[in-house]
């Protein structure tokens, strides 16, 4: 109960702060990014190739000059085709060309903190996304597929920069690096870990 009260106080504080701060750009923004992701850990053992098929999109609200909250989604497709090999399996020994895929669609709430005021030419920031991700796992043995689809918890800390096109421009260039973690377990995957690099734009809406 005390915790909730503390949170309420924090939010009341930031809203009050927003009211008094001079705004450089409107508080609401949307962002769209293209992203590339490298699989890490057991995900790399399952499907080791860097994914060039990904994007993210989000919505952010500046509570004051530096603190923002938001919501975001995205998509990343991990895909690797392995040459024919023999896999010992419960069925016996199976010779197959394996195509191992994992498609991830996160839905996360975000909180961000800008390290500088919004009138600077470069605005570095840190953010964290917490939410769920839809994991669509498909392991093809030749043309036969072993599949699993489930929702998992996912947390994603992020570091990035926003570069406005002019001091008070509502359009900003964005580049960020995000680490994604999910306790997803399926076949060879013991945990989902990826490093995601994104570039895109952020538009403040009036």
């Amino acid at each position: 109960m005390k915790k909730i009260f503390n949170w309420m106080m924090i939010f009341a504080g930031v809203f009050a702060a927003q009211a008094v701060s001079a705004q450089v750009r409107p508080p609401l923004s949307i962002d769209v990014n293209y992203s590339v992701a490298s699989p890490l850990g057991s995900l790399q053992d399952y499907s080791g190739k860097t994914s060039f098929r990904g994007w993210t999109a989000g919505l952010q609200y500046m509570l004051n000059d530096q603190f923002s909250v938001g919501l975001r989604t995205g998509f990343q497709d991990f895909n690797e085709k392995l040459p024919r090999a023999v896999y010992p399996d419960k069925l016996g020994d199976v010779s197959a060309v394996q195509t191992r895929t994992l498609q991830v669609i996160p839905i996360q709430a975000t909180a961000g903190w800008a390290f500088t005021k919004p009138d600077k030419p470069v605005i570095p920031y840190a953010a964290v996304g917490v939410g769920v991700a839809n994991m669509d796992y498909k392991k093809y043995w030749g043309e036969f597929v072993e599949s699993d689809n489930s929702w998992q918890f996912m947390v994603s800390p992020e570091l990035g920069i926003n570069i406005p096109f002019g001091q008070a421009s509502p359009v900003l260039f964005n580049a960020n690096v995000r680490y994604n973690y999910s306790p997803y377990k399926m076949g060879d995957i013991t945990n989902f870990n990826s490093l995601q690099y994104s570039v895109g734009f952020k538009f403040h809406l009036n």
Binding site: N79, L91, V94, A96, V97, G142
Partner: peptide
């Protein structure tokens, strides 16, 4: 997402158990 079945040859589609 890429459909793995689209760029699979018949040889690659086969499994031998």
């Amino acid at each position: 997402g890429k459909d793995p079945l689209k760029d699979m040859t018949p040889e690659e589609s086969r499994i031998y158990i």
